[in-house]
Design a protein around this nucleic acid. Structure first.
Lengths: 182, 182
DNA sequence: AATAATACCGAACAGTATGTTCCGTACAGA
DNA sequence: TCTGTACGGAACATACTGTTCGGTATTATT
């Protein structure tokens, strides 16, 4: 990729991220983004079709980065395929704790609805692989898709509660909470 | 309240509701609303400060209406204060099933993110009253606010799953699912 | 080093949405 | 009947979007 392209792309992502920490996504204008990124208007639109696509790509990068990092921590195993749930989700919490890329600012900002939604979408396939670990006598007759949805959304809601509460608990504690209610 | 005010208010709500069933909230313009409601532009803005406030007031009316109806069904008892959880949540599902005010169209449209959020906010205080019914050996040491949040969001996610799946299950079945995972 | 390709800027552009203001009309409640 | 006020219609300034253009600087290619 052309170095110029990479630079402007990063400048736009940076400006956009900073703005997201300040105000609602809906109230951010392209004008503000290009001002802060110091980039021409036409340049912006040559990179991103609309503001929504910019958000989508940002989310994709962030969550993709999380997945990669979690898998690395786990000796290149496909963590969500084979590892026990406490370990898998603990690593997710730990990576969030590290707060790379300022992902926590985004998840806890006023825009958290948007991000948590993307977060959940990305978690669904993980939850699917984790499903066998959560089957019990009580829920084994329930539809699989309902259980998968429940696992993913419970994790997202747990993260959300953690963030809005100021992230006082350790990743270990949060993993404990999460597993206790499932 | 002046009959004229009431009429235009209802006309706007009606037009807005119909539009919400067709497209995203963000892509609905004030122009479209007042066209369909057959109302002057200035009139709209004398009723609602912005489009966001219109949404807020619509949600408030709908959820207020649900709460009232559920309480009536229950012989004017404060259902969420005193009734067993299966009964309380069953009544909620049944009222949703009846689909008054087209609330289901709103909850299942592309706008569901917004509405489910309001829905959850309204459920939080109910979940608080229901909390004692959900305390178990396993979760009794967890923070109360975490459990309340978990109950409310699990219910919302259950409704969401129900809606996106086409509402094929009966309210009794859904209540069963909901209680099984808690 | 010379060349071709292309990413960029900046400015301008039409199109559309917002929220406000005005005055004349029609309806409500007393 | 009378007074207040909600309404309609239209115009308005302002702001944001997404596109277009010609000129410049940087990149990759040879």
């Amino acid at each position: 990729m052309d170095r110029r392209q990479r630079k402007t792309r990063e400048a736009i992502f940076g400006a956009f991220t900073a703005l997201l920490a300040e105000k609602d996504f809906e109230h951010i204008t392209v004008g503000e983004i290009i001002d802060r990124a110091d980039v021409g208007r036409a340049t912006f639109y040559s990179h991103f079709e609309t503001k929504d696509f910019l958000l989508k790509e940002l989310c994709a990068e962030l969550f993709c980065h999380i997945s990669d990092a979690v898998e690395e921590n786990c000796d290149h195993k496909h963590i969500f395929d084979c590892v026990a749930p406490d370990s898998a989700f603990l690593h997710l919490f730990m990576h969030l704790q590290k707060n790379d890329n300022g992902i926590l600012e985004l998840l806890s900002s006023r825009n958290n609805g948007l991000f948590l939604r993307y977060f959940k979408d990305n978690l669904m396939r993980f939850a699917e692989n984790q499903l066998p670990h959560f089957i019990s006598e009580k829920n084994k007759s329930l539809p699989k898709s309902y259980l998968v949805n429940h696992i993913a959304s419970t994790f997202v809601e747990t993260v959300h509660w953690w963030l809005t509460g100021g992230r006082k608990e350790s990743p270990e504690t949060m993993t404990g909470y999460f597993l206790a209610v499932l």
